[in-house]
Nucleic acid binder design. Structure first.
Lengths: 342, 342
DNA sequence: TTGTAAGCGTTATCAC
DNA sequence: GTGATAACGCTTACAA
């Protein structure tokens, strides 16, 4: 018997070859029994299943990925985990991918560094994901070039996209912002402020939509268009509102590009005895669960985040299965939730 | 020239062999230049780096994992993504693992199915993670057996653990619950209710701690010990409080095992004109960001979730690097945050 | 329906 | 300091 060179393996776990040896078949038959049972005789199938159980066999996706060029992983790139909005998207994605046997690899791009997405994508490509879910459709040229050169299927989430080759699942942030603006106008507001923080492209687009509605109504005032780069928070919403009321007492309505800013505003108004909506109407964005519970319940725009995550994941796996499929997109829209604040 | 059999590879990406051929060295030298640069001459190192750049080489972690038996992935098993508490833990983990070059694989066990963790673990083992982060230390026998048989290093998070072999990073849920109970007692409360939902072992342990404090003070009343299996939410907090006030008007204090339940209670009391803390004192758990902003700011127990995630990830990677290391644990404690509600 | 051989892209081992 | 070779555990291609 010849001496074989042996090496550190994954904790000397049971391999397909071990199972094959035990049953007295070749490894490929075990492989078939597990992946395409119908191509293996019932007798063998049963014995193989029994042996897998008995030996505690757990297939190695690492080896499988290398051999088949399918890693069964999907990379998901989002800006932040601290923003509940993206958690909801992730929940939808995760449920779908779990069902389909994919693992999710998560990457956080942050809001500040424009090169972050590209660097992150490069790191993720090392894991050879079968597909990629991206937030928004404003990727840099470098990111698009990488996706193209590695031929990784991708789907964009949470915004619409005019480019015909783009696969996306989301809604029009511009239209949603415009709808919010029009709602305030319909409430008789003429001095409407726009308050945004953590300016990602989608927040900006919402604000632009709201601005367009105000411009159309002939009552847009740049002095009331506040776009702040710092992170969005309840505290910031309170702070900005205090400043707004002090400096622009004529202001009678506010569009907040995120519910948490609006929550801060509502708490602050409650403390200061400022009547909402009489003195100051406000509308938020995303309809977080607490928005039904603020001192004055918050009128806001609901976005179908979990559904977007779910369908983006679904669409991506379809695209992976059929690379010839033409570009698809799903516009899930948005919904105005009328409560007491506007 | 002999005809080589070729197969579908990962989108015919540039491989280490391509880089090696370009530079005129062997693949192993490229491998060394990337992983242990100091073992390769400076001249070669430079040329290799240049070639990698020029050819757009992205190393394959899949192949690396198979060859080295190190996948550079860590599996993290948590009960839920909808609970912000675990998001904070994930944020801490993610930051740490990103820094160390690990990818995180996330698994959601849910609260209901006792066999879920084992099934999930088995799925995750297919990806051959280098280590596993688990929530709590109440794993089933099957889970412990799997961990042992696959020799995967693990660290438990978010609770303490008496078992000497157990690696954990967290705090004592029992002690934290007891501290909350004692705080209500110190406020002169004698008819204290315990309200819990989504009964995972850590919530139960908190409640048990609070109960122990009440028993010790001689004022524990089982009729006021409400442990509900349904998911925790703001709405449920409001609902339970309404029932409690109606059925047990003598109740003068409540320990909520989660802040969101307490938020619902505070909103409801605000609406009903029930004075907090005069008529009903309350204390929550976890100190969510909104807890400083409720109608009556919420007294609660702060838990260092991000730090727990961070240190658990750090400890796990140390354990991976040095399998001989003796069991470690880090008790991060908790902190009573005194606000107006108790 | 089952098997043989080769190959996926990297790294461990040993030799020079 | 650099290289040849085998090996990691699985799947594709082809043969029987």
């Amino acid at each position: 018997m010849q001496l074989r060179k042996t090496r550190a393996s994954f904790s000397s776990r049971t391999t397909m070859a071990d199972v094959a040896r035990d049953v007295g078949v070749s490894a490929i038959t075990v492989s078939r029994a597990l992946r395409t049972p119908e191509t293996v005789s019932e007798a063998l199938r049963t014995r193989i299943a029994e042996a897998c159980d008995r030996l505690g066999y757990v297939p190695s996706r690492v080896a499988s990925a290398l051999a088949s060029a399918r890693s069964m992983t999907i990379s998901v790139l989002i800006p932040s985990l601290s923003n509940i909005v993206f958690i909801d998207v992730i929940v939808g994605i995760k449920e779908t991918l779990d069902r389909l046997g994919y693992q999710m690899l998560m990457g956080i791009t942050g809001y500040d560094d424009p090169g972050a997405e590209e660097r992150l994508l490069r790191r993720h490509l090392e894991f050879a994901p079968d597909g990629i879910l991206l937030t928004g459709a404003d990727q840099s040229e470098a990111v698009r070039a990488l996706l193209k050169s590695f031929a990784v299927p991708s789907v964009h989430m949470m915004d619409d996209c005019a480019w015909p080759e783009c696969w996306w699942v989301g809604f029009s942030n511009f239209d949603a912002g415009a709808a919010a603006g029009r709602h305030l106008l319909a409430n008789g507001r003429r001095r409407v402020a726009i308050v945004a923080a953590q300016l990602d492209p989608r927040s900006v687009r919402r604000c632009d939509g709201c601005r367009a509605a105000l411009v159309e109504a002939g009552c847009y005032d740049p002095a009331l268009d506040l776009r702040l780069p710092q992170p969005s928070s309840i505290a910031l919403g309170a702070e900005v509102t205090a400043g707004l009321v002090a400096r622009n007492p004529e202001c009678d309505g506010v569009f907040f590009c995120n519910d948490d800013l609006a929550h801060g505003a509502l708490f602050w108004c409650g403390q200061q005895g400022i009547a909402v909506p009489q003195r100051l109407a406000m509308i938020g964005f995303h309809d977080l669960s607490a928005s039904a519970w603020t001192p004055t319940p918050l009128t806001t725009v609901e976005t179908p985040r979990a559904r977007i995550g779910r369908d983006a994941a679904l669409l991506l796996t379809r695209r992976i299965a059929d690379p010839a499929m033409p570009p698809q997109h799903i516009d899930h829209g948005f919904q105005l939730i009328r409560r007491a604040s506007a």
